[in-house]
């Protein structure tokens, strides 16, 4: 057997041994990570959806609001976590706030774009039929913008799952814990034992949301 296959085989054995050895740590971290990401996305949706809808209506607010969320996005993630610590202290809340801030931009922007791109003829037809502004939003604009909005949420989710690895620096746990320990111990296996679940989690979230997107996209729009 060539030596590199041999080496790889040995490496794999060691990796699996590490995973089994640290499975409790990885398991806890995985669940923490999942919750952190999920709650951050959830809060981000609660803020971004109404915000996106609002700026789609009040167009002159759109540029400033998107500008603000974009600026927040450009703050390096590590710096944002560090910046929040003196203000709020360490812990899960700090991590959640940082992650939520990161998730805002894609959702706000896609909600705004989705609602703004609804064909003006649809809006006119809806108004002319005597829909109130609220009815128009719920029955026409929102359903038609939904594919866009879901795409924004998916982008935000993948982003959040990645950035959530930094939660470890504010003591909020997550798979960053595993990676950080691996880094400190120069333990490649442990680093990967933290990193691979992050990727798996991102793919999982994306998969679930994709399914959800398919379910919620009105059938009539899928026909093209």
């Amino acid at each position: 057997m060539p030596s590199f296959v041999n080496g790889f085989y040995k490496w794999g054995q060691e990796f699996i041994a590490t995973v089994i050895d640290r499975r409790e740590l990885i398991q806890t971290a995985f669940i923490e990570h999942l919750w952190l990401s999920f709650i951050a996305i959830f809060i981000a949706c609660l803020i971004s959806l109404p915000l996106g809808i609002w700026i789609a209506r009040a167009k002159r607010m759109a540029e400033p609001m998107i500008g603000v969320t974009a600026v927040m996005q450009t703050i390096p993630s590590l710096a944002l976590f560090g910046f929040l610590v003196p203000l709020i202290g360490i812990g899960t809340n700090t991590a959640l706030i940082a992650l939520t801030i990161y998730a805002l931009l894609p959702i706000v922007r896609n909600t705004y774009t989705g609602i703004s791109r609804v064909n003006p003829a649809m809006i006119e037809a809806a108004s002319a039929m005597g829909m109130t502004s609220k009815q128009r939003l719920l029955r026409v604009e929102f359903p038609l913008a939904l594919p866009f909005i879901m795409a924004g949420i998916r982008t935000a989710t993948v982003l959040t799952v990645g950035v959530a690895t930094l939660a470890t620096f504010v003591g909020a746990g997550g798979l960053g814990d595993v990676i950080y320990r691996g880094l400190q111990a120069y333990n490649q296996h442990l680093i990967l034992a933290g990193a691979i679940p992050v990727a798996i989690l991102a793919i999982m979230f994306d998969f679930v949301l994709k399914y959800f997107e398919k379910k919620t996209t009105p059938k009539g729009i899928q026909i093209k």
Partner: peptide
């Protein structure tokens, strides 16, 4: 709203809602 519900309206680009 009352007024508009009492008047039928047909527009050029048809204006049917694609999701319905």
């Amino acid at each position: 709203v009352e007024l508009r519900r009492s008047i039928g309206y047909v527009i050029q680009q048809i204006g049917l809602f694609p999701h319905m």
